[in-house]
Deep mutational scan, measured.
Amino acid sequence: GATAVSEWTEYKTADGKTYYYNNRTLESTWEKPQELK
């Protein structure tokens, strides 16, 4: 079936920290989303 993983994109900030952005909800988070675990 369809999965929600594709909504999240992993980015890195200029200082090398990783964060996650959800293209559907426009939410961003420092925590790894449940969908990616």
Rank of each mutant, 00 (worst) to 15 (best):
G1Y: 11
G1F: 14
G1E: 12
G1T: 14
G1P: 14
G1D: 13
G1W: 12
G1H: 14
G1V: 13
A2K: 08
A2V: 13
A2M: 13
A2G: 13
A2W: 10
A2P: 11
A2D: 13
A2H: 13
A2Q: 14
T3L: 13
T3F: 11
T3M: 13
T3I: 14
T3K: 05
T3H: 13
T3N: 12
A4V: 14
A4G: 12
A4L: 12
A4N: 12
A4Q: 13
A4P: 12
A4D: 11
A4R: 08
A4Y: 06
A4M: 12
A4F: 09
A4K: 09
A4W: 12
V5P: 13
V5Q: 13
V5N: 11
V5R: 07
V5I: 14
V5C: 15
S6L: 08
S6M: 10
S6V: 09
S6H: 10
S6A: 11
S6T: 11
E7R: 03
E7F: 08
E7L: 05
E7D: 12
E7H: 07
E7M: 05
E7W: 08
E7Q: 06
E7K: 03
E7T: 05
W8H: 00
W8Y: 02
W8F: 02
W8N: 00
W8T: 00
W8G: 00
W8P: 00
W8L: 01
W8Q: 00
W8E: 00
T9A: 10
T9E: 09
T9G: 06
T9I: 14
T9D: 04
T9V: 15
T9P: 00
T9K: 10
T9H: 10
T9F: 09
T9N: 07
T9M: 13
T9L: 08
T9S: 11
E10T: 09
E10L: 05
E10S: 05
E10Y: 04
E10M: 09
E10H: 03
E10A: 09
K12H: 09
K12S: 07
K12V: 12
K12D: 02
K12L: 10
K12I: 12
K12Q: 10
K12Y: 09
T13I: 03
T13W: 03
T13G: 08
T13D: 12
T13R: 04
T13V: 03
T13Y: 03
T13A: 06
T13S: 07
T13H: 04
A14I: 11
A14P: 12
A14E: 11
A14Q: 09
A14G: 07
A14F: 04
A14W: 08
A14V: 11
A14K: 11
A14R: 09
A14N: 08
D15G: 07
D15E: 09
D15Y: 06
D15F: 05
D15H: 04
D15P: 01
D15N: 08
D15Q: 07
D15C: 14
G16L: 01
G16D: 03
G16W: 01
G16T: 00
G16F: 02
G16M: 02
G16R: 01
G16N: 03
G16K: 01
G16A: 02
K17Y: 07
K17E: 08
K17D: 05
K17Q: 10
K17V: 09
K17H: 08
K17S: 06
K17A: 06
K17G: 05
T18G: 02
T18Y: 08
T18R: 05
T18M: 06
T18L: 09
T18E: 03
T18A: 05
T18I: 12
T18S: 10
T18F: 07
T18N: 04
T18Q: 03
T18H: 04
Y19C: 11
Y20I: 00
Y20G: 00
Y20K: 01
Y20N: 00
Y20H: 01
Y20E: 00
Y20A: 00
Y20T: 00
Y21H: 06
Y21G: 01
Y21N: 01
Y21I: 12
Y21L: 09
Y21C: 09
Y21Q: 06
Y21W: 10
Y21E: 03
Y21R: 07
Y21T: 07
Y21V: 15
Y21S: 03
Y21A: 03
N22V: 00
N22Q: 00
N22W: 01
N22T: 00
N22E: 00
N22A: 00
N23M: 10
N23T: 13
N23S: 12
N23R: 11
N23A: 10
N23H: 15
N23W: 15
R24D: 04
R24T: 10
R24H: 09
R24V: 15
R24M: 10
R24K: 12
R24W: 09
R24S: 08
R24L: 13
R24P: 01
T25E: 02
T25D: 02
T25K: 01
T25M: 01
T25W: 02
T25P: 01
T25Y: 02
T25L: 03
T25V: 02
T25H: 01
T25Q: 01
T25F: 02
L26F: 14
L26T: 09
L26S: 11
L26V: 02
L26P: 01
E27N: 04
E27M: 07
E27F: 04
E27Y: 04
E27Q: 10
E27I: 07
E27S: 04
S28I: 15
S28W: 15
S28R: 13
S28N: 05
S28Y: 15
S28P: 03
S28G: 11
S28H: 13
T29Q: 11
T29Y: 06
T29N: 03
T29I: 07
T29R: 10
E31Y: 07
E31T: 10
E31D: 10
E31L: 08
E31K: 05
E31V: 12
E31N: 06
E31R: 05
E31F: 08
E31I: 11
K32I: 10
K32R: 10
K32S: 04
K32D: 04
K32V: 10
K32W: 04
K32L: 09
K32T: 08
P33N: 03
P33K: 02
P33I: 03
P33W: 03
P33Q: 02
P33Y: 03
Q34Y: 10
Q34E: 15
Q34I: 11
Q34L: 14
Q34M: 13
Q34G: 10
Q34R: 08
Q34S: 12
Q34N: 13
Q34D: 15
E35W: 05
E35R: 03
E35C: 15
E35P: 05
E35V: 06
E35F: 06
E35Y: 07
E35H: 06
E35A: 10
E35L: 05
L36M: 10
L36F: 12
L36C: 11
L36N: 07
L36Q: 05
L36I: 08
L36R: 03
L36K: 04
L36W: 08
L36P: 05
L36V: 07
K37V: 14
K37L: 15
K37H: 13
K37E: 14
K37C: 15
K37D: 14
K37Q: 14
K37T: 14
K37W: 11
K37F: 14
K37I: 15
K37S: 15
